[in-house]
């Protein structure tokens, strides 16, 4: 039956907290890649070239409908087959960044489409270039409606980082597995990992909602 050992808990807690730093780093880096790359994927679907639109659209669909853990394996193992060796961190960041870029591109796409056509016409009549129109007029207006989706995926990427443990990124789950195999005790490490995730993701989700409301108020939209 259940025997929770507090001395063991205090022993392993510092290790798990240190690994939490790696988890947050992985989530942060992956998200940074996804935010930028997602915008590229969204804009690529709005070029006048139909072929580009179709290829990018299909690639996004493909990435969105296949498992992240499989993509992580794919990126990590396929490189060496062709002579390109990636560290677990590099492979993990590419896989998770690309996966969430596909999700975020859908969020941006919705935001970009919600900008009224009149804004484009006004920019054209002011003789602004396409690039300038995007960066000064369209994207700033597309961001606020995208914020809710972006926030959800920030929490989402954080919760998906344990999958990086499968290729040996030393994040929270990897550390809990290591503790489990060293000590044959799984109750405390896995439970603590669950508690740490809850303790981080619930407040983050709440903060994001507050931030979103704040942005909406600031911009005078309700």
């Amino acid at each position: 039956m259940l025997d929770w050992r507090w001395d063991f808990t205090w022993d392993i807690l510092p290790r798990l907290i240190a690994a939490t730093g790696n988890t947050l780093l992985a989530a942060g880096l992956g998200y940074a890649i996804a935010v930028v790359l997602g915008l590229v994927l969204a804009l690529a679907q709005r070029t006048p070239y139909r072929a580009v639109t179709i290829v990018v659209r299909e690639a996004v669909e493909f990435i969105r409908s296949t498992p992240l853990v499989l993509q992580i394996f794919f990126v990590f193992y396929v490189g060496p087959q062709f002579g390109l060796r990636l560290s677990p961190w590099a492979a993990g960041m590419i896989a998770i960044g690309l996966h969430y870029a596909a999700y975020l591109s859908e969020v941006y796409r919705g935001g970009l489409e919600s900008v009224p056509k009149g804004q484009w016409e006004a920019a054209t009549s002011l003789n602004l270039s396409t690039a300038r129109t995007y960066f000064r007029i369209i994207i700033p207006q597309a961001l606020p409606p995208s914020l809710a989706g972006m926030g959800n995926y920030l929490v989402g990427i954080f919760k998906d980082t344990p999958m990086l443990s499968v290729i040996g990124v030393a994040e929270l789950m990897h550390t809990a597995n290591a503790i489990g195999s060293e000590t044959y005790r799984f109750l405390e490490p896995y439970t603590l990992v669950g508690i740490i995730f809850l303790a981080l993701s619930l407040p983050t989700a709440a903060l994001i909602r507050v931030f979103e409301a704040w942005v909406r108020r600031k911009l005078g939209m309700y």
Partner: peptide, 24 residues
């Protein structure tokens, strides 16, 4: 809802597979 949405599927899977047996 909050527990299952607030933690990772992988954590839940390991917990159900490795820890639940300790509860019988």
């Amino acid at each position: 809802i909050e527990i299952f949405r607030g933690t990772s599927l992988l954590v839940q899977l390991y917990w159900i597979f490795f820890v639940l047996p300790l509860f019988g």
